[in-house]
Simulated scan of single mutants.
Amino acid sequence: MTTQPADPMEGAPLIRPSTTDHPLYESVVEACRTVFDPEIPVNIFDLGLVYTIDISPQNEVGIVMTLTAPGCPVAGEMPGWVQDAVNSVAGVQNVEVQMTFDPPWGMDMMSDEARLELGFM
């Protein structure tokens, strides 16, 4: 008899929530907004490429992000751009950027500002 792998708990979010109540959160978001996908004239945060910003009590930042497509030409460079941008925020002690493609990025993840900028609204 074979068993099926356990499905994620029903109702569990696919994307882990960010620590939006941390005092550095807004500054980290603004730093992420300085990084752009070279092929799209919108920053990675408003594109919805940043899934989670997790900030510890020791001001260590963990970012889970994705790309518009797994074959993105800057896939190897973008995590470093994000790390450099967030490392420049006063008070940040350490930054780790993790790439994921689960869930895959979709245009529905863009902010209204990004949709407007790209002519989708």
Rank of each mutant, 00 (worst) to 15 (best):
T2Q: 14
E26L: 15
G106K: 09
S88N: 13
V42T: 14
P79V: 02
V42G: 06
R16Q: 14
V89S: 05
T19S: 15
V92M: 01
Q98F: 01
V50S: 08
L24D: 10
G119D: 06
V42H: 03
P5T: 05
I53R: 03
V64S: 09
V95S: 04
V29D: 12
I44H: 01
E117Q: 15
P79S: 11
V50N: 05
V35A: 09
V97G: 04
E60A: 14
P23L: 13
R33Q: 15
T52I: 04
P17K: 05
V86K: 00
P23F: 13
Q83P: 01
L67W: 03
V95G: 08
F45G: 09
T52K: 02
V74D: 06
C72W: 01
I63H: 06
E30R: 15
A69L: 05
M9N: 08
C32V: 08
S18K: 04
V97P: 00
L49K: 01
A85I: 10
M109T: 00
V50H: 03
A69E: 02
F45E: 13
M99H: 07
D46W: 03
V86F: 02
L118P: 01
S27K: 14
I63G: 01
P13C: 07
V89Y: 11
P17W: 08
P79A: 13
D112F: 00
V97C: 11
P103Q: 10
